[in-house]
Deep mutational scan, measured.
Amino acid sequence: SRSVIRSIIKSSKLNIDHKDYLLDLLNDVKGSKDLKEFHKMLTAILA
């Protein structure tokens, strides 16, 4: 869910600018399909 993804971003080791950017992107995501794609992208970034 959106709140879980937000929590993953906030607890990541990324610097604050990257976190803010990803949180802004997350706010722009519409629909469950796009949310799944965003989660895939985030997982790849944090891997």
Rank of each mutant, 00 (worst) to 15 (best):
S1F: 15
S1N: 10
S1Y: 15
S1L: 15
S1H: 13
S1D: 11
S1C: 11
S1V: 11
R2K: 12
R2Y: 12
S3A: 12
S3I: 07
V4G: 06
R6F: 04
S7Y: 13
S7A: 11
S7C: 08
S7E: 13
S7F: 11
I8D: 02
I8G: 01
I8A: 06
I9K: 00
I9F: 02
I9A: 01
I9Y: 00
I9M: 01
K10I: 14
K10M: 15
K10T: 09
S12D: 01
S12C: 05
S12M: 05
K13M: 09
K13D: 07
K13Q: 09
L14N: 01
L14E: 01
L14F: 03
N15W: 08
N15H: 13
N15F: 09
N15V: 05
I16A: 14
I16N: 12
D17E: 14
D17L: 11
H18A: 10
K19E: 03
D20K: 15
D20M: 15
Y21H: 07
L22Q: 00
L22V: 02
L22F: 04
L23R: 03
L23K: 01
L23Q: 03
L23H: 02
L23Y: 07
D24N: 14
L25V: 06
L25Q: 06
L26F: 03
L26C: 01
L26H: 00
L26M: 04
N27T: 05
D28M: 13
V29M: 08
V29Y: 06
K30V: 10
K30N: 07
K30F: 06
K30L: 06
G31N: 12
S32A: 13
K33E: 12
L35T: 03
L35Y: 05
K36G: 08
K36A: 13
K36F: 14
E37L: 14
E37A: 14
F38G: 00
F38Q: 00
F38A: 00
F38P: 00
F38E: 01
H39S: 09
H39E: 08
H39K: 12
H39W: 15
H39Q: 10
K40T: 06
K40R: 13
K40H: 07
M41K: 06
L42C: 02
L42I: 10
T43P: 02
T43W: 15
T43G: 07
T43Y: 13
I45E: 03
I45W: 12
I45Y: 10
L46S: 01
A47V: 07
